[in-house]
Structure formats: C-alpha cells, structure tokens
C-alpha cells in the first residue's frame, strides 16, 4: 500500500491487476466478459493475473463442446493468453477439490494455490476486478 502512495501521481507505474473469476461459463455472461476485458486491457502493459475460484474453475475445464447450445466455445481463448503476456493463472486448490477436479482436467497450465496463499496474493494487488 505504502509503495502505491509514494507513486501516486506518477503516470508510468505498472499496476498489479487481478481478475477474480468465480462463475461457470455459459450459464451467465461473466466468464466471457472477464476474458474480453483481460484481452482488451492487455494493450495497456500492466501486470495482470487471472484467478479462478469457486465455479470459476469450470471455465478452464477441458473438452467443452458448445455446438448444441448455440453459444461460442470460448475456452480455446484461454490458451491464447500467453500471447497477450498474461502468464499468471492461479486456481484455488479448495475449489478444485470441492469439484473433484485436478490440474490435469484443465486446458491450460495453471498454478494451484491453497486459499491462504491466494488470499495473500490478492492483498498485494493494486486492483482486483471481480467477475
């Protein structure tokens, strides 16, 4: 916090943005909106991470086939995040376990963290955007 205040008024400070994703894909628009904001925001060269908690972990489930529900399958786009220099994807261990999933069920490499570590990481952010 103090570091941020010292830099207040500076225009070129890179801020730490965290996108907190807690909703499953398709049932609501949150997951897709978050992804689009991340991709658009990538043009601003900030320090961006994405976190997947609760049903948000389902966004990264392998094998999504949306042809029969008439919605675009946007899950392959998570694999493009690396091209946008967004390489920090965190998944909460407790959320995965509550859903009987492991990192092997996910379509991108992620860092699995327990709640305590993730909570600490959230506190270090300048901005946390919740979806």
């Amino acid at each position: 916090m103090s570091g941020m205040e010292e830099n207040e008024g500076g225009t070129d400070k890179v801020k730490r943005f965290m996108f907190l994703n807690r909703k499953a894909p398709y049932g609501t628009i949150y997951a897709l909106e978050s992804l689009e904001v991340v991709l658009i925001g990538a043009a601003f060269d900030q320090n961006v991470s994405m976190v997947f908690v609760d049903d948000g972990v389902y966004q990264l489930k392998k094998g999504q086939q949306t042809k029969d529900i008439g919605q675009k399958n946007f899950s392959p786009t998570y694999r493009a995040l690396e091209d946008y220099d967004i390489e920090k994807l965190y998944v909460e261990q407790e959320s995965l376990e509550a859903r009987g999933l492991t990192a092997d069920d996910l379509l991108v490499p992620v860092e699995v963290l327990p709640s305590a570590a993730l909570g600490a990481l959230m506190e270090e952010q300048d901005v946390v955007l919740s979806f």
């Binding site: 991709l39 990538a42 043009a43 675009k72 399958n73 946007f74 392959p76 786009t77 694999r79 493009a80 091209d83 946008y84």
Partner: peptide
Amino acid sequence: EYQIAPAIRVLTKA
C-alpha cells in the same frame, strides 16, 4: 486454434 482474432501487437509477435 484460439477462437479469437489477435490484437495487432500479438499478431506482429506471432
């Protein structure tokens, strides 16, 4: 591959 049209910066790099 990714279901997205890349932004110019990403396109240039890729």
